[in-house]
Protein backbone atom coordinates (compact mmCIF):
# COMPACT_ATOMS: atom_id res chain seq x y z
CA UNK A 1 0.00 0.00 0.00
CA UNK A 2 1.01 3.60 -0.53
CA UNK A 3 1.84 5.61 2.61
CA UNK A 4 0.00 8.92 2.28
CA UNK A 5 -0.26 11.76 4.76
CA UNK A 6 -3.22 14.07 5.29
CA UNK A 7 -3.18 17.08 7.59
CA UNK A 8 -6.04 17.67 10.00
CA UNK A 9 -5.56 21.38 10.63
CA UNK A 10 -7.29 22.42 13.88
CA UNK A 11 -9.77 25.30 13.70
CA UNK A 12 -12.12 26.92 16.19
CA UNK A 13 -14.98 24.66 15.21
CA UNK A 14 -13.50 21.59 13.63
CA UNK A 15 -10.71 20.68 11.25
CA UNK A 16 -9.65 21.27 7.69
CA UNK A 17 -8.42 18.13 5.98
CA UNK A 18 -5.73 18.58 3.39
CA UNK A 19 -3.48 16.05 1.65
CA UNK A 20 0.25 16.51 2.15
CA UNK A 21 2.19 17.76 -0.86
CA UNK A 22 3.95 14.40 -1.18
CA UNK A 23 0.58 12.85 -2.06
CA UNK A 24 0.59 14.24 -5.59
CA UNK A 25 4.06 12.81 -6.28
CA UNK A 26 3.12 9.40 -4.84
CA UNK A 27 -0.05 9.22 -6.92
CA UNK A 28 1.78 10.36 -10.06
CA UNK A 29 4.21 7.47 -9.65
CA UNK A 30 1.40 5.01 -8.89
CA UNK A 31 0.51 4.09 -12.51
CA UNK A 32 4.05 2.77 -13.00
CA UNK A 33 3.81 0.58 -9.92
CA UNK A 34 2.38 -2.89 -9.67
CA UNK A 35 -1.42 -2.88 -9.10
CA UNK A 36 -0.97 -4.85 -5.87
CA UNK A 37 0.28 -1.59 -4.26
CA UNK A 38 -2.59 0.61 -5.40
CA UNK A 39 -4.17 0.76 -1.96
CA UNK A 40 -4.03 3.87 0.22
CA UNK A 41 -2.76 3.86 3.77
CA UNK A 42 -3.61 7.38 4.91
CA UNK A 43 -2.04 8.76 8.09
CA UNK A 44 -4.18 11.56 9.49
CA UNK A 45 -1.76 14.06 11.00
CA UNK A 46 -3.66 15.60 13.91
CA UNK A 47 -2.89 17.74 16.96
CA UNK A 48 -4.03 15.13 19.51
CA UNK A 49 -6.82 17.18 21.04
CA UNK A 50 -9.81 15.79 22.88
CA UNK A 51 -12.23 16.99 20.23
CA UNK A 52 -10.59 15.29 17.30
CA UNK A 53 -12.58 12.40 15.90
CA UNK A 54 -10.64 10.17 13.54
CA UNK A 55 -13.73 8.29 12.25
CA UNK A 56 -15.39 11.60 11.42
CA UNK A 57 -12.33 12.95 9.68
CA UNK A 58 -11.57 9.74 7.79
CA UNK A 59 -14.04 10.35 5.00
CA UNK A 60 -12.82 13.89 4.42
CA UNK A 61 -9.24 12.61 4.41
CA UNK A 62 -10.09 10.17 1.62
CA UNK A 63 -11.74 13.04 -0.26
CA UNK A 64 -8.68 15.26 0.18
CA UNK A 65 -6.39 12.51 -1.12
CA UNK A 66 -8.72 11.77 -4.00
CA UNK A 67 -8.81 15.46 -4.86
CA UNK A 68 -4.97 15.46 -4.92
CA UNK A 69 -5.13 12.46 -7.27
CA UNK A 70 -7.56 14.13 -9.65
CA UNK A 71 -5.97 17.58 -9.50
CA UNK A 72 -2.40 16.32 -9.68
CA UNK A 73 -2.37 16.50 -13.48
CA UNK A 74 0.58 15.72 -15.66
CA UNK A 75 4.07 16.01 -14.28
CA UNK A 76 5.84 19.22 -15.07
CA UNK A 77 7.85 19.10 -18.26
CA UNK A 78 11.44 18.71 -17.25
CA UNK A 79 14.53 20.33 -18.62
CA UNK A 80 15.87 17.13 -20.16
CA UNK A 81 13.00 17.05 -22.63
CA UNK A 82 13.76 20.61 -23.74
CA UNK A 83 17.45 19.74 -24.05
CA UNK A 84 16.48 16.68 -26.11
CA UNK A 85 14.56 18.87 -28.52
CA UNK A 86 17.57 21.14 -29.04
CA UNK A 87 19.77 18.11 -29.74
CA UNK A 88 17.19 16.79 -32.19
CA UNK A 89 17.22 20.03 -34.18
CA UNK A 90 21.01 20.02 -34.18
CA UNK A 91 21.06 16.47 -35.55
CA UNK A 92 18.52 17.31 -38.24
CA UNK A 93 20.45 20.41 -39.29
CA UNK A 94 23.75 18.53 -39.46
CA UNK A 95 22.14 15.60 -41.26
CA UNK A 96 20.66 17.88 -43.93
CA UNK A 97 23.97 19.75 -44.28
CA UNK A 98 25.84 16.47 -44.76
CA UNK A 99 23.42 15.25 -47.43
CA UNK A 100 23.52 18.59 -49.29
CA UNK A 101 27.32 18.82 -49.03
CA UNK A 102 27.86 15.18 -50.00
CA UNK A 103 27.97 16.02 -53.71
CA UNK A 104 26.69 12.54 -54.49
CA UNK A 105 29.35 10.69 -52.47
CA UNK A 106 27.88 7.90 -50.37
CA UNK A 107 29.91 8.41 -47.16
CA UNK A 108 28.62 11.86 -46.09
CA UNK A 109 25.19 10.98 -47.47
CA UNK A 110 25.12 7.86 -45.28
CA UNK A 111 26.21 9.87 -42.25
CA UNK A 112 23.50 12.45 -43.01
CA UNK A 113 20.84 9.77 -43.40
CA UNK A 114 21.97 8.16 -40.14
CA UNK A 115 21.55 11.47 -38.31
CA UNK A 116 18.24 12.30 -39.97
CA UNK A 117 16.48 8.99 -39.54
CA UNK A 118 18.75 5.96 -39.12
CA UNK A 119 19.53 6.19 -35.45
CA UNK A 120 16.00 7.14 -34.42
CA UNK A 121 14.50 4.36 -36.53
CA UNK A 122 16.81 1.74 -35.00
CA UNK A 123 16.06 2.97 -31.47
CA UNK A 124 12.33 2.84 -32.23
CA UNK A 125 12.70 -0.66 -33.73
CA UNK A 126 14.53 -1.95 -30.65
CA UNK A 127 12.17 -0.10 -28.28
CA UNK A 128 15.02 1.70 -26.56
CA UNK A 129 13.13 4.93 -25.86
CA UNK A 130 9.91 3.33 -24.73
CA UNK A 131 8.53 4.85 -21.54
CA UNK A 132 7.59 2.93 -18.42
CA UNK A 133 4.25 1.19 -18.90
CA UNK A 134 1.62 3.20 -17.08
CA UNK A 135 -1.94 2.14 -16.57
CA UNK A 136 -4.77 4.20 -15.14
CA UNK A 137 -5.07 3.66 -11.43
CA UNK A 138 -7.84 3.64 -8.93
CA UNK A 139 -7.46 2.40 -5.38
CA UNK A 140 -7.61 -1.40 -5.62
CA UNK A 141 -8.37 -1.80 -1.93
CA UNK A 142 -10.45 0.28 0.42
CA UNK A 143 -8.31 2.97 2.09
CA UNK A 144 -6.95 2.37 5.57
CA UNK A 145 -7.04 5.56 7.62
CA UNK A 146 -5.11 5.87 10.86
CA UNK A 147 -4.45 8.96 12.96
CA UNK A 148 -1.08 10.09 14.29
CA UNK A 149 -0.44 13.00 16.63
CA UNK A 150 1.92 15.71 15.40
CA UNK A 151 3.74 17.66 18.12
CA UNK A 152 4.05 20.86 16.08
CA UNK A 153 0.38 20.91 15.18
CA UNK A 154 -0.52 20.42 18.84
CA UNK A 155 1.61 23.41 19.86
CA UNK A 156 -0.08 25.59 17.24
CA UNK A 157 -3.53 24.58 18.47
CA UNK A 158 -2.65 25.34 22.08
CA UNK A 159 -1.23 28.76 21.26
CA UNK A 160 -4.34 29.63 19.23
CA UNK A 161 -6.60 28.80 22.15
CA UNK A 162 -5.18 31.73 24.09
CA UNK A 163 -6.42 34.23 21.49
CA UNK A 164 -10.08 35.29 21.59
CA UNK A 165 -10.54 36.78 18.15
CA UNK A 166 -10.88 34.15 15.43
CA UNK A 167 -9.04 36.06 12.70
CA UNK A 168 -6.19 36.96 15.06
CA UNK A 169 -5.92 33.34 16.18
CA UNK A 170 -5.73 32.11 12.59
CA UNK A 171 -3.14 34.79 11.75
CA UNK A 172 -1.08 33.63 14.72
CA UNK A 173 -1.50 30.02 13.57
CA UNK A 174 -0.29 30.96 10.09
CA UNK A 175 2.82 32.69 11.45
CA UNK A 176 3.65 29.75 13.69
CA UNK A 177 3.04 27.20 10.96
CA UNK A 178 5.34 29.10 8.57
CA UNK A 179 7.99 29.25 11.29
CA UNK A 180 7.76 25.50 11.70
CA UNK A 181 7.85 24.82 7.98
CA UNK A 182 4.28 23.51 7.87
CA UNK A 183 3.40 25.27 4.64
CA UNK A 184 0.16 23.37 3.98
CA UNK A 185 -1.09 24.28 7.45
CA UNK A 186 -0.05 27.92 7.04
CA UNK A 187 -1.99 28.22 3.78
CA UNK A 188 -5.17 27.04 5.50
CA UNK A 189 -4.77 29.55 8.33
CA UNK A 190 -3.93 32.37 5.92
CA UNK A 191 -7.13 31.72 3.99
CA UNK A 192 -9.16 31.70 7.19
CA UNK A 193 -7.45 34.81 8.58
CA UNK A 194 -8.53 36.57 5.38
CA UNK A 195 -12.16 36.07 6.38
CA UNK A 196 -13.07 32.92 4.45
CA UNK A 197 -15.50 30.66 6.28
CA UNK A 198 -14.18 27.07 6.60
CA UNK A 199 -17.21 25.72 4.73
CA UNK A 200 -16.37 27.84 1.68
CA UNK A 201 -12.69 26.95 1.45
CA UNK A 202 -11.70 25.92 -2.08
CA UNK A 203 -10.89 22.19 -2.33
CA UNK A 204 -7.21 22.77 -3.06
CA UNK A 205 -6.95 24.39 0.37
CA UNK A 206 -8.89 21.68 2.17
CA UNK A 207 -12.16 20.08 3.25
CA UNK A 208 -13.85 21.23 6.42
CA UNK A 209 -15.17 18.85 9.06
CA UNK A 210 -16.95 20.21 12.10
CA UNK A 211 -16.11 19.11 15.63
CA UNK A 212 -17.78 15.93 16.74
CA UNK A 213 -19.33 17.92 19.60
CA UNK A 214 -20.86 20.38 17.13
CA UNK A 215 -21.56 17.90 14.39
CA UNK A 216 -24.89 16.25 13.80
CA UNK A 217 -24.00 12.54 13.76
CA UNK A 218 -26.88 11.81 11.37
CA UNK A 219 -25.42 14.09 8.76
CA UNK A 220 -22.56 12.78 6.59
CA UNK A 221 -19.16 14.39 7.17
CA UNK A 222 -19.09 16.19 3.86
CA UNK A 223 -17.90 19.73 3.29
CA UNK A 224 -20.60 22.29 2.62
CA UNK A 225 -21.06 23.17 -1.05
CA UNK A 226 -19.38 26.31 -2.34
CA UNK A 227 -21.73 29.28 -2.73
CA UNK A 228 -23.04 30.05 -6.22
CA UNK A 229 -21.12 32.90 -7.82
CA UNK A 230 -23.42 33.83 -10.70
CA UNK A 231 -26.50 36.04 -10.48
CA UNK A 232 -29.74 34.12 -10.61
CA UNK A 233 -31.59 36.73 -12.59
Amino acid sequence: MMNLACWAVPLRDGYVLRADRSTAAILQAAPARSPQFWGWRIALIQPQSQQFSAPLAARAAVMAVDYARLAGGAAARDRSRRRGRIMLWMEVALGLALIIASGGHWVPALAGAWLLAGRRWLRWLFGLDRQVVQSPTAPAQSPIVSSDAHAGLGRIERSMQAVDDDAAAYALGAVQARAQGLDEVAEVYEALAGGTHPSTLPPHIGFWVADETLHNPWRPALPAPAPATGNAG
Binding site: M2, N3, A5, D20, S22, I26, A43, H150, L153
Partner: peptide, 12 residues
Protein backbone atom coordinates in the same frame (compact mmCIF):
# COMPACT_ATOMS: atom_id res chain seq x y z
CA UNK B 1 2.65 12.35 13.12
CA UNK B 2 6.10 13.62 12.28
CA UNK B 3 7.20 10.09 11.46
CA UNK B 4 4.19 9.65 9.18
CA UNK B 5 5.08 12.83 7.28
CA UNK B 6 8.70 11.68 6.89
CA UNK B 7 7.45 8.33 5.60
CA UNK B 8 5.14 9.92 3.09
CA UNK B 9 7.83 12.28 1.79
CA UNK B 10 10.39 9.48 1.50
CA UNK B 11 7.87 7.32 -0.35
CA UNK B 12 7.16 10.14 -2.80
Amino acid sequence: GELAVIRSRVEA
